[in-house]
Design a protein around this nucleic acid. Structure first.
Lengths: 344, 344
DNA sequence: CTGAAAGCGCTTACAG
DNA sequence: CTGAAAGCGCTTACAG
C-alpha cells in the first residue's frame, strides 16, 4: 500500500529554516527555542500535517508510554466479561489520563505468547489480569519489566497484586443473611483454585460457624462447582433442586454473581418465589445483577478502584519509586436488593 | 528504573561470531544462513535471553503490525458494553490470529485525541467502533491510513463499514410477533441519529404496515427514547405504563436488548406476566438476555462475524488489496425465547 | 538560543 | 552464504 509520504522532522526543519535539533526541541517541548523560531516550526508542522513518529522517539528514549494488559481466561467472554470488562474500562481510562496507551491481549492457553509479544513491543509495564500460572510470572520476572497482578492469586510474595478483601466480604455476606433471620444455608462455591472463590467461601463459613451454624450440624450445605459461569450455576441448582427444596434452605449464597444468576434463573423457572421462599446473594456486583428481576443482592468488588490503582501503581513502578505495597486490598460491602429483601 | 541491559542483535552477533546482518537474517527468518551459523546464532540468542526489539524493526520496515481500535461512546460502559465487548473480543481474537497486536482506546468526547495517539504510534490500520462524527473520519482520511467502521453510521460513501441488516431484522421482528397473533404493538425506539436504531424501527413499522397495521390506526404506538440504556428503557416504560395497560398492547418491541430488559424489569416489578400478558422482543442478542428470567427473545447481531471480518478486511486494506466492498451487511434472525413464547 | 554529530536497534540492498 | 554500510526518524549531550 502506497501512503502519502509522511513528512519527518527533517522536512519541517527545512521548511522552517532551522536544524533538525531545533525542530525537535520545539515539537517535543524539551529544550529552548526563541518565540520566533518556535512559531515558524509550528507553522511548518501544521502545513505539512506533521505527526511525530512515536516509534522513532521510543527507540531513542527507551520509553514507549505503552502498557500491556493481558487477560488470562480460557473461555470466550474476555473483554466482555462483566467484571473484567469493568476493570479494563477503568484501566483504559486511567492509562489515558496518565498518557499511556494500552495493548490489550487475551491469552486462552496461559501461554507465554502474549507476554512475548508485549516484551518485544517494549511496553513500559504489564498488567496481568486473572489467575495465571507461575511460569508466566517467572518469565516476566526474568525480563525485569515492571508488572503487577489484578484480581489473581499467587503465593509468590514478590508480586504486587490488587485484590478484594474476599474473606471479609464472605463474612459480611454470612452476617447479613443471618441478620435477615436465615438459618439454613445453601452455598454454591466456584473453583477452589481461584483465590477469590475460596476466600469468599472461607469467610462465609467461618462467620457462620462463629454464629453457631456449621456444615456438620446440617445448617449449611456447600456445593462445589468447577466453574463459575451462569450455566454452571444453573446446572448445579438443577442437579440439587430436590434436595434444596426438601431440606428447606431459605438462603442461597454463591461465590459470584454469575453463579447466583444461573441458580436464580433455575429457581424462577421452577416457580420459586424470591426472596419470599429463598433469598439469593451473589458476589461481584456486576451490572446484570442490578438489572435482573428480582434485582440481585450482592457483595461489591471495587472494579473502579482496582483499575485506577493498578495503573497508578504500575506508573510508580515504571518511574522507579520504591517502597510500593505488595498487596492492595479493597473492602467489599453488601448491596441489598430485591433478591434478599423483596420489592424496593 | 534500571533495567538489565537488553542485549541487542550486535551482542548476539558478537557471541555467535557473525555479523549483525547475518544475525538479523536468522532471527527474522529472512534471508540465507548456513545451518551451522543458524545454530550458533540461535544459541547465542537463547543464552542472552534475546528479545527482538519490535520498535526498532518497525522503524525500518515501516510496519508495526499493530492495529488501533477506538470505541466512541459517551458513557462509561465501553469495553464492558455487552455488544461492543463481544465485538472487541472477536477483534482481539482475529487480530492475534493474523499476527497483529491491538491498541484499544476509548473516546468519550468524540475528539481527535485517541486518533492522534494512534497515528503517532504508526498503527497499520484503524477500526472505528460505534457512531462517530464526520470530523473524525475526515481527519483519518487526511492521513491516508487504512481504516474501517464497525457498527456505526455514515453517509460518506468512501468508508468501508460493517453493519447488521437492521431493516430486514426489524421486519423479521414484526413478522414474528404478528405471526404469534399480536395486533397491538408498543415500541420503544432508541436514538434516531443512530443508524441501527432508526433502521430497526423503520423495518419494523414498514412490515407492520404491509400487514395492515399502522400508527394512525392505533395498532402501533412508538415511544422515542433519547438513549438506549437499561435505565432509559425502565423509565420510558414507567412513564407510559398506564397508557400501556389501558390500551391493551400485547407486544413490546424495542430497538435493542438493553431497552427491552429495562422495560421488562418494570413490567415484572409491576406484576405483569410475560409473555402471557405481554410478549417482549429486543434486538442485539446480548448475553444478559438469555440469562434473564424470563429469557429475552431477540434479533441477532452477528458480533462474531463482524469482529472477525473487520480484521480480515482491514488486513486486506493494509496489504493494498483492491476492490474491497464498501459495505458488508450481516443478516439478523429472530431468537425465540421465553419472553415471547413462555417456558421452553 | 541553535546546530552538527552520534546513536537508539534493527533491516536491506549491494558486493563479494 | 556472509559482511560492511547506509538509513529508518527521532533525541540528546556537546559546542558554540
Amino acid at each position: 500500500m502506497t501512503r502519502k509520504p509522511n513528512h519527518g522532522l527533517r522536512e519541517i526543519a527545512r521548511v522552517a529554516g532551522v536544524s533538525k535539533s531545533t525542530a525537535s526541541r520545539v515539537i517535543s517541548g524539551n529544550g529552548y527555542a526563541s518565540a520566533e523560531v518556535k512559531e515558524r516550526v509550528l507553522q511548518a508542522a501544521e502545513a505539512l500535517h506533521y505527526k511525530p513518529n512515536a516509534v522513532a522517539r521510543a527507540m531513542v528514549t527507551k520509553r514507549t508510554y505503552n502498557l500491556g494488559v493481558i487477560v488470562f481466561r480460557e473461555k470466550p467472554p474476555i473483554v466482555s466479561h462483566p467484571l473484567y470488562g469493568k476493570i479494563i474500562d477503568e484501566i483504559l481510562f486511567a492509562s489515558e489520563a496518565r498518557g499511556y496507551s494500552v495493548f490489550l491481549k487475551t491469552d486462552r492457553e496461559m501461554s507465554l505468547r502474549s507476554t512475548d509479544f508485549l516484551l518485544e513491543q517494549r511496553v513500559d509495564g504489564l498488567i496481568l489480569v486473572s489467575r495465571l500460572q507461575k511460569n508466566v510470572i517467572d518469565y516476566v520476572k526474568k525480563f525485569h519489566l515492571p508488572y503487577l497482578m489484578v484480581n489473581g492469586s499467587t503465593d509468590d510474595p514478590d508480586v504486587i497484586h490488587l485484590v478484594s478483601n474476599d474473606e471479609t466480604g464472605g463474612a459480611r455476606a454470612a452476617e447479613y443473611l443471618y441478620g435477615l433471620g436465615h438459618r439454613q444455608f445453601f452455598v454454591i462455591a466456584g473453583p477452589v483454585e481461584h483465590r477469590s472463590h475460596s476466600l469468599r467461601l472461607t469467610g462465609f463459613l467461618r462467620r457462620l460457624e462463629q454464629l453457631g451454624l456449621s456444615e456438620q450440624s446440617g445448617a449449611v450445605r456447600v456445593i462445589p462447582s468447577p466453574e463459575s459461569s451462569f450455566d454452571t450455576g444453573f446446572q448445579r441448582m438443577e442437579k440439587h433442586f430436590s434436595d434444596f427444596r426438601k431440606y428447606g434452605y431459605t438462603a442461597l449464597f454463591t461465590t459470584n454473581d454469575m453463579l447466583a444468576l444461573g441458580a436464580m434463573k433455575l429457581l424462577l423457572d421452577r416457580g420459586v418465589q424470591i426472596p419470599q421462599e429463598v433469598a439469593v446473594l451473589g458476589y461481584d456486583d456486576i451490572e446484570l445483577g442490578r438489572m435482573y428481576s428480582p434485582s440481585l443482592s450482592t457483595v461489591t468488588v471495587d472494579a473502579v478502584g482496582i483499575g485506577r490503582d493498578a495503573v497508578e501503581l504500575l506508573d510508580k513502578l515504571i518511574r522507579g519509586e520504591a517502597d510500593l505495597p505488595k498487596l492492595v486490598e479493597y473492602e467489599s460491602y453488601v448491596v441489598k436488593r430485591q433478591s434478599t429483601e423483596g420489592k424496593e
